[in-house]
Amino acid sequence: MRGVVAIAQNTVREVIRQRMVLVLALFGVGLVAASQVLSPLALGEGRKVVTDFGLAGSSLLATLLVVVLGSSLLHKELERRTIYAVMAKPIRRSEFLLGKFCGLWITAAALIAGMFAIVLGVVTVSYGETPWLVLGAMALTVLELGVITAIVVFFSSFTTPALTAFFAAATIVAGNFADDLLYFGSQGAAPWVARATEAVYWMLPHLTVFNARGAVVHGIAVAPERLAFAAAYGLLYLMALLIVAGAIFERREFR
């Protein structure tokens, strides 16, 4: 377990070195500018517009960070051959993978927390009211990022950075269309097609489970049972992915 923690800490340091603070600063400046420019144009809906853009921007940026940085994390270790030094220590490959996952997820969660804090601050200062309900959406976004990080780590365990980024992005897009896939499969298709689409439906991550951005903006709180369900689903999904990724990575030949 100590090995996992050490690798996670190292991954956090590595990701932070990629100018994450700059991302936060740019996000803050962008949101302040947007609130000043958009508020007069939104006919009294400035608070909603700024909160919406803030939440959507945070989630998009954090997802991009996970996909872009995550897809090359393992590859860098292989390319620089630093993985051999790590593997010489009493640590299993699957633990190494788990450490990478934890490091990336923790960093993404910290980034999300920072960006949501900026949203809360900007909305409070601009409109004199703190939208505390966005914290429920933040918890769900952190869980969503856990699933996305696991997807990235899963693909990076057996393919190149470019393909990892592509497959991860495709899975995220498909995860938002999971319900439609099931619907089309059930509309008079051959039985085997219906069964295949149903299987894909269950395999895809149901990312809509983690999306409460639209609700909190309209003053609807995230219910504790929804949070509990999302946590259970997200943790089970990412654990399953990490187990499969670990098994693949154990068998992978390093060149």
Binding site: L41, A42, K48, D52, L60, N176, D180, T208, G214
Partner: peptide, 21 residues
């Protein structure tokens, strides 16, 4: 709605701003 990939309220705001414009 589906095409916005979960960012439907932000997309609605953009359409709203465009409508006012």
């Amino acid at each position: 709605r589906q095409a916005t990939l979960g960012y439907e309220t932000a997309a609605a705001d953009l359409a709203w701003l465009r409508g006012i414009q």
